[in-house]
Design a protein around this nucleic acid. Structure first.
Length: 746
DNA sequence: ATTAGTGGTGTTTTT
DNA sequence: CACCACTAAT
């Protein structure tokens, strides 16, 4: 067939085999830069073009919204078809869609709202307080983690095995949490998946319907699926449908949120039955970069095994620069970027990667001073800013006034005389009568000033609701921003201009969203997408979709999209992207690999995979940088170079660093804008006095008979009580009692 | 009721 | 350092 041939042109034999696989499940092990997305999109186009399936019968799942958009764009480029019938989205996005279509069967109100992590945490905190739980013993974050981990494993509170009394209490909290969510009509991220999974497993009619519909299921980044997502896919596939799963176990970097690489092995056994295709030819990077990545990842034991190769030449060597401080590291990068710019490399094609968001500060500072334009991804996302969350909370109340979280967020913003005292009264009423805070606020007449404030608020929300009837979505947003008093509040604030700008940006976002036809589409009871004529007279459906969009896609939309700017982001958010030049920064023990992950082998292997992802982002030029000292938690930390540097064969690396000068011996390094005073002894806190006699200084290299080489990072106590914190190359951070440890200066 | 100020505490990565 | 929770002062 002529069309199909042109579609398949230029594929290598393995890619071709994967694309044209018969209708059966298969696992595609696709290395970094091996044309994974191309295979996925071409497969979809081929299936459609050869008449094996209509767009309607396709379901494609990704992990990020960006990946989903990319996939749709590329499919449209391959085939001149309407992609609307296809379901392409993230697990969370698709589950949201299913639950909105079948909210009754799922036991949810039509206007259910989605809690993001921060919302969830505040709900947990509220619950702990209400239930009189000691939050020292049960830190809110841990309770949150407990709930999510269980949901992601597919377990309801009633299904959690209780080992200890401690667990028992956690389960009680879990139960109470879910009850509260149900009362409020809100779902968290994990609930989105679990609820949807339960809906499909329990409702035979629905399940049969979707199984009949989606004859072809494709999954991107399969290594990132958790247990629940695996079971969700399995349920949707049923006995007859094929799952085409693409993944790379070496790029699994989300174990911390439940991703489970064992899913790949299990999938191979249960579905693919040996139908595994490896894509090992890399089209992205020059040889030296690939050799470095391959050598690094070979240090991991838990691998399915794969080795990338390229037909391209070796290219440049990698560069390694060990700066004396984080500021100096940033300065080096600025210089190099200037050079690259002169060579004609576009700034958008240059990425600066780091392990944690906090590291961007020092880099931003240097870049800002240098005048180079840059763009930071991640960090504080648009929909997570407080002014945006305030505005969204008012909108949520229009859709669903039972949403206690939303009510609490804005009941006194701007201030209207409702303090802790009145809130307590309100919460007492709500608890006693088993009603939402909103109902409590409407129903009761609290005495005195408190009552007046609450009544004002209730009237305000009712006015907002009445006032936005028959308004379009952007008009509604505009209206509530003004009528709620938010705008006036920020106008009175002398540094409120940025927030006002963001609020008007929110109106723009609503305008854009409302223009997108998908927003105004809905589904009939069978899950078929239908165009709505007058089905949404009060705009509630669009509003709900917009609010869901805000939770699920916290902030891809950021200013400065089109400009030629340097790209700053964490390694995690760089996955799937590629650049001409990549700087991998902060390569220090304790930072990358991160100290919290050094306790177990699994954690270290995940860090190494993360490093592998970082290295394989580069096409032509790759810089590795580290800093001997770094400001962290407001104090200076002294680090040794990351083990990952040593895991790259030294013949691939060109070392640019001049020999260290006077960085050892307790002096702050040169080139630092705010040099710390020389430190004579242990530590720097007021508790510990420097001891000029002592041979031990912060930053001093030491060796230990058992732990090997390390660097003194901090210290406390004096004399016999003195304890040193040492960052060891092999075993990480340790506290040692100076009196007993056999340390020698190195 | 609200604000300003204090002290203690903790910090990876994200849909 | 930055964020919180709590206290003292307005």
């Amino acid at each position: 067939m002529y069309g199909a041939n042109s579609l398949l042109e230029g594929l290598n034999p393995e890619q071709l085999r994967a694309v044209t696989l018969p209708n059966q499940s298969a696992l595609i092990l696709a290395g970094a830069g091996s044309g994974k997305t191309r295979v996925l999109t071409t497969r979809i186009a081929w299936l459609i073009q050869t008449g094996q399936v209509l767009p309607h019968g396709l379901l494609a799942v990704t992990f990020t919204n960006k990946a989903a958009r990319e996939m749709l764009t590329r499919i449209s480029a391959l085939l001149p078809i309407n992609t609307r019938g296809m379901w392409v989205g993230t697990f969370h996005g698709l589950c949201n869609r299913l639950l909105r279509a079948h909210f009754r069967d799922a036991g949810l109100p039509q206007t259910f709202q989605i809690l993001d992590s921060a919302d969830q945490l505040s709900l947990v905190k509220r619950l702990l307080k209400a239930m009189n739980v000691d939050d020292d013993k049960y830190p809110p974050k841990e309770v949150q983690y407990f709930i999510n981990a269980n949901k992601e494993a597919g377990r309801r509170a009633s299904q959690v095995e209780i080992g200890t009394e401690f667990d028992g209490r956690l389960v009680e909290l879990f139960t109470a949490y879910d009850a509260q969510c149900n009362r409020e009509g809100v779902v968290d991220f994990a609930e989105l998946l679990l609820r949807c999974f339960e809906l499909l497993s329990r409702n035979e009619v629905l399940r049969a319907h979707y199984q009949r519909r989606f004859s072809h299921i494709l999954v991107d980044e399969f290594q990132d699926t958790n247990r629940l997502q695996y079971r969700w896919l399995k349920t949707l596939a049923g006995q007859a449908n094929a799952i085409f799963a693409v993944g790379d176990d070496d790029q699994s970097i989300y174990a911390f949120r439940g991703a489970n690489t064992r899913n790949m092995a299990e999938f191979e056994r249960e579905f693919a039955r040996g139908q595994v295709i490896k894509l090992e030819q890399n089209y992205r990077s020059h040889g030296n970069i690939l050799d470095a990545a391959n050598a690094l990842i070979r240090h991991n034991t838990a691998r399915l095994g794969k080795n990338l190769w390229t037909a391209e030449g070796k290219g440049e060597a990698l560069s390694y620069y060990e700066a004396t401080s984080d500021a100096e590291e940033a300065r080096f990068i600025v210089d190099e970027v200037r050079g690259l710019k002169r060579e004609g490399v576009a700034l958008t094609d240059v990425a600066i990667l780091y392990r944690s968001n906090a590291q961007s500060r020092a880099l931003e500072h240097a870049l800002f001073t240098s005048g180079l334009s840059y763009r930071v991804y991640g960090g504080l996302r648009f929909f997570e800013r407080q002014e945006i969350k305030h505005a969204l909370a008012y909108l949520r109340l229009l859709a669903n006034p039972e949403d206690d979280n939303a009510l609490l967020r804005v009941i006194n913003v701007p201030t209207r005389g409702i303090g802790a005292r009145s809130l307590e009264q309100l919460q007492d009423v709500s608890r006693a009568q088993g009603v939402s805070l909103w109902q409590a606020a409407c129903g009761t007449s609290l005495g005195g000033k408190a009552g007046a404030g609450v009544a004002t608020f209730v009237r305000l929300v009712e006015q907002l609701k009445a006032g936005s009837e028959h308004l379009s979505l952007p008009q509604t947003v505009d209206h509530i921003i003004k009528a709620s008093g938010l705008l006036a509040m920020y106008e009175n604030d002398k540094d409120g201009q940025d927030r006002i700008d963001n609020l008007s940006e929110l109106i723009t976002a609503a305008t854009v969203f409302a223009e997108d036809p998908v927003a105004t589409l809905a589904m009939d009871e069978e899950g078929n997408v239908v165009v709505q004529e007058n089905a949404d007279p009060d705009g509630l459906v669009v509003l709900n979709n917009f609010l869901a969009h805000a939770s699920l896609e916290a902030g891809e939309h950021q200013a400065g999209e089109g400009q030629d700017a340097l790209q700053l982001m964490t390694v995690h958010s760089a996955k799937g992207l590629e650049f001409h030049t990549v700087f991998v920064t902060g390569l220090e023990e304790g930072l990358f690999p991160h100290e919290n992950s050094l306790n177990d082998a699994d954690g270290t292997e995940e860090e190494r995979r993360l490093m592998y992802v970082a290295l394989t982002r580069a096409r032509r030029r790759l810089y590795l940088t580290a800093a001997q000292t770094r400001m962290l938690h407001g104090q200076m930390r002294y680090n040794i170079a990351s083990r990952f540097i040593d895991e790259v064969p030294s013949e691939l690396i060109r070392r640019l660093t001049p020999p260290p000068t006077f960085t050892r011996g307790g002096f702050a390094p040169s080139g630092n804008a705010s040099p710390a005073p020389a430190r004579g002894g242990f530590g720097s806190g007021p508790v510990t006095q420097p001891d000029p006699q002592s041979p031990w200084r912060i930053g001093q290299g030491v060796s230990h008979p058992k732990f090997g080489y390390g660097v003194i990072v901090s210290a406390e106590g004096r004399g016999d009580d003195a304890r040193l914190q040492v960052n060891f190359r092999e075993v990480g951070m340790k506290w040692l009692a100076l009196q007993y440890a056999k340390l020698t200066p190195a």
